[in-house]
Nucleic acid binder design. Structure first.
Length: 872
DNA sequence: TTAAGCTCC
DNA sequence: AATCTGGAGCTTAAT
């Protein structure tokens, strides 16, 4: 017996839309409803294995009851824009998959579904109807199953209804379901029903009498007298309601079953669509092997040393070579980290020259690595993904650095918003090459090498088109080597002192724990916000316990307000501080100390949206400084014997960048003369002579200065300064009056971003801002703040990168022993050989202050010390 | 895996 | 009518 699945298109889209978090693709297109729809559809198809499939849509986008308001009468919301824009795309996607869709002017999807369902059942088919709308239950029979998906946590659950299930659950048959609705009405469908009859009464009446007609004839017997009276009084209305409630099962629908036959959904067109929508999980459903990847024919696995020798010799003279180092073949890419388990190389230097060369019996690891080094240092263009991680094995001579091309970094510049930059993605995006996720490791190695080889050109073209070619060549690529040096250098830790610090924290924590249990009158996990909230706001009855959806907020700003009145709260805050210090810093850092007594953290170049560098394993960019107790941690960061720390940080680099980019005369002038920019700002904003500015005025001016850089709102500023929103907006207004160039610049930047879809730094780095297209006020506002902040933060990052490169290069050129060890966004830490100290100081100041020439001076503060605490 | 909390610039 | 300062990473608890 053949089977058909019918889907209520808008209903399922709507379910998916409200059941999933907002997703957007790179174009700023919202995709969550489509994604959810497809997941539900695939799940159903796998379960049902039907022969036919059809999706029905309403011609005019219907309104929907928002789930939250489903119980309220008459609260239909118009379809959200984010959902509306997904509807035509959804239809396109279905068509790309060869799925039949039906819609007809004047018909609701219900009627289409009812009609097709009825026709198919008559043909002796099994019918499965998918909808989120319970009205469809009236269509259920022995052969028509209604399936209602529920988006729950951890996947979708589906409620199934044959006729008997409807009866069991609602006490009436599917046909009677229409009569129930006729009596109770449905405000959202404009079905009036009969007054004073709700769901309970309606169900009871229909369960007993089977139809409104029969109930009408026995009106005098009806239970609640009011119902009896009204059913007579409103009989015409009841009949009309029944007509409205009934789904038409004989509508004039042009429908040919043959067109609905379920064929292979995973077409090339669908693949391209999924790719564009960035449905990565769904892409894996496609049987990529079926597609002819002609490059695959060129893949060769080389085990013979003579052949390997011929290949690498040829590679050395190649124009462009893509290389990959891989672990043992059992291990999955990406690259090995620690050196153990080197498996071999992948190399590509032409469309017909793509090789995987495993290290093995005839081909020694050391020989192979040596060949890789020679290739890297001889080809005109050497391309890898994540070059920095290969540099320990393949050192690049300084004069050869400019011949290197890191495809990961290039892909990052082209779209810094992505989470990762895999070779599979780059192959897909740049080469239109689809890689089978199930391919064996050798094939993947070949693919990666080939992608590196072949993608460098389109990547470079795109960098040129977007005018980021200079940024790439002059800043990002050289930075790869600087960051590598910094990682290799690492920073020395006095591990004894660190352990002592941790132990001290440990004892203090135990003490505090006892005191808190004592004061609370019970023992609980203080680290659990959930438990803590219950103890504080329920058991101990502390005031103001309202906040957040998952319980009480126990965030520091909430507890701060309570601390003066409740000593236990102060203890808890102290406990939090100490446990944070111990777990993240004392114990956390200790775990990363290497055999050389140093921490070699990672500095990541392809993470942030703005162009900053990030630091992981461990994060060395968030070592405490604000609180004294935390700041002490910095005493364990020490230079090696014979060395001293030199720490230099830019003074207000972001504000200076803003002054330059905006060209604001006042602010530029202020910086050219400046001793104290916040005081000058206060003086100008508050119309107070410079020398008479109060501390409060200065503090406020400083907060406004920061707020401006972050993309200010009056609310944020008012929070920050504990003033009213009105006062805050007055501050901002006066600030903009004082510095009209800044207002103009920020407005222009947002306008440009809205038009172009991205913002740019002074050095050409781009950041897309898809949020600006959102119809959601909050999202759009976020986009505006991002548009204001990113060019400033990004330009500062660009400048720091240029400075680092110069510092690193200069130290190496002069063959100095001093070395760069840390970067913290606007700060560099150098481990300086004591004899070189004066040179280092001069060089640092020169490189940093002259890194870029702006209309305002770039100034650094510099200190030396025997540890990081002293040097900062 | 996510949320809440905390650390930094 | 609503909104409610930008960029990161790590640890813990709870799912």
């Amino acid at each position: 017996m053949s089977k058909i699945v019918l889907i209520d298109g808008h209903s399922i889209l709507n379910r998916a839309f409200y059941g999933l978090p907002d997703l957007t693709n790179a174009e700023g297109l919202h995709t969550n409803a489509i994604y959810g729809f497809l997941n539900i559809m695939f799940k159903i198809l796998e379960e049902e294995k039907p022969d036919y499939l059809t999706v029905a849509f309403d011609v005019h986008a219907p309104t929907f009851r928002h789930e939250m308001f489903a119980d309220y009468k008459g609260t239909r919301k118009p379809m959200a824009d984010e959902l509306r824009q997904q509807v035509p795309v959804m239809k396109d996607v279905l068509h790309a998959m060869g799925v039949r869709t039906v819609e007809k002017e004047g018909l609701e999807a219900d009627d289409i579904l009812g009609t097709i369902s009825c026709r198919c059942e008559k043909e002796g088919m099994e019918v499965v109807v998918i909808s989120g709308d319970r009205d469809l239950l009236q269509l259920a029979t022995e052969h028509v199953k209604i399936r209602i998906p529920k988006t729950k946590k951890g996947g979708t659950e589906v409620e199934d209804y044959y006729a008997s299930d409807v009866k069991e659950r609602y006490l009436v048959t599917p046909k009677e379901f229409i009569d129930v609705k006729a009596l109770m009405g449905d405000a959202s469908d404009n079905i009036p029903g009969v007054p004073n009859i709700g769901e309970k009464t309606a169900t009871k009446i229909i369960a007993e009498y089977g139809s409104i007609e029969n109930a009408y004839e026995h009106a005098s017997e009806l239970k609640p007298p009011r119902a009896a009276k009204n059913i007579v009084e409103y009989w015409e209305q009841a009949k009309l309601s029944k007509e409205l409630a009934a789904i038409n099962i004989d509508a004039p629908v042009d429908y040919n079953l043959a067109e609905a036959e379920l064929t292979d959904l995973y077409t090339e067109a669908a693949y391209e669509y999924f790719q564009r929508l960035q449905f990565k999980n769904l892409l894996s459903r496609f049987d990529v092997q079926a597609k002819s990847n002609s490059v695959e024919d060129a893949f060769r696995i080389i085990t013979d040393k003579e052949e390997a020798r011929r290949i690498v010799d040829k590679a050395k003279t190649a124009e462009t070579a893509g290389l990959v180092l891989y672990k043992n073949l059992k291990n999955v890419l990406p690259l090995f980290a620690s050196g153990a388990g080197f498996g071999g190389i992948g190399i590509a230097f032409g469309k017909e020259d793509i090789y995987c060369i495993p290290a093995g019996e005839g081909i020694e690891e050391s020989w192979l690595l040596e060949q890789a080094r020679e290739i890297a240092n001889n080809v005109a263009r050497f391309v890898m993904f994540d070059l920095k991680s290969a540099l320990p094995y393949i050192p690049i001579r300084p004069e050869r650095e400019e011949h290197c091309f890191d495809a990961t970094v290039a892909a990052y510049l082209l779209n810094p918003l992505k989470n990762d930059y895999t070779f599979e993605d780059v192959a897909r995006e740049q080469l239109n090459l689809m890689i089978d996720p199930k391919a064996d490791t050798e094939a993947k190695v070949c693919y990666e090498a080939y992608t590196a080889y072949a993608a460098s050109e389109p990547l470079w073209e795109k960098l040129t088109e977007t005018q980021m070619d200079r940024l790439f060549k002059q800043i990002e690529m050289p930075l790869v080597f600087t960051l590598f040096d910094m990682e290799q250098n690492g920073v020395m830790i006095e591990s004894e002192a660190l352990r002592f610090y941790g132990n001290q924290l440990g004892s203090k924590i135990v003490e505090l724990e006892k005191e808190i249990y004592e004061m609370a009158g019970e023992e609980f996990n203080i680290n659990s916000p959930k438990q803590l909230g219950v103890v504080l706001f329920e058991h101990m009855q502390l005031p103001n316990g309202k906040k957040t959806k998952t319980g009480y907020s126990t965030a520091a700003d909430v507890l701060d307000k309570l601390a003066p009145d409740y000593p236990v709260v102060s203890k808890i805050l102290e406990y939090r501080q100490l446990t944070k210090l111990k777990s993240t810093y004392a114990d956390g850092l200790a775990a990363y100390i290497g055999e050389d007594g140093r921490i070699h953290g990672k500095f990541n170049q392809t993470i942030t949206a703005t162009g900053r560098i990030s630091s992981t394993e461990p994060n060395l960019q968030n070592i405490p400084i604000r609180m004294e107790l935390g700041r002490l941690i910095r005493k364990v960061f020490i230079p090696e014997d014979g060395y001293v720390f030199v720490d230099a940080d830019y003074s207000q680099i972001e504000l200076r960048v803003l002054a330059h980019c905006s060209g604001d005369k006042e602010l530029i002038q202020a910086y050219r003369e400046a001793k104290d920019i916040h005081r000058i700002t206060a003086s100008q904003v508050f119309h107070t002579p410079f020398d008479e500015v109060t501390d409060l005025q200065r503090r406020n001016a400083k907060a406004v200065n920061f707020g401006i850089v972050y993309g200010i709102s009056s609310f944020g500023l008012s929070q920050d300064l504990s003033i009213t929103r009105k006062e805050a907006s007055q501050y901002i207004e006066r600030y903009f009056e004082t510095y009209p160039g800044i207002k103009e610049f920020l407005d222009d930047t947002v306008a440009h971003a809205k038009e172009m879809g991205y913002v740019v730094t002074l050095f050409g780095r781009r950041r897309p801002v898809p949020e600006l297209k959102s119809s959601n006020f909050m999202q759009r506002s976020f986009g505006e703040r991002v548009a204001m902040n990113s060019p400033i933060q990004g330009t500062a990052a660009d400048i720091m990168k240029m400075a680092m490169i110069r510092v690193d290069k200069e130290l190496k050129n002069r063959k100095m022993k001093s070395r760069l060890v840390l970067q913290v966004h606007d700060e560099l830490l150098i481990e300086a050989w004591k004899e070189e100290l004066p040179q280092v100081e001069e060089l640092l100041r020169e490189c940093m202050e002259q890194a870029a020439e702006l209309d305002v001076p770039l100034i650094i503060d510099m200190h030396t010390g025997e540890n990081w605490y002293e040097a900062k």
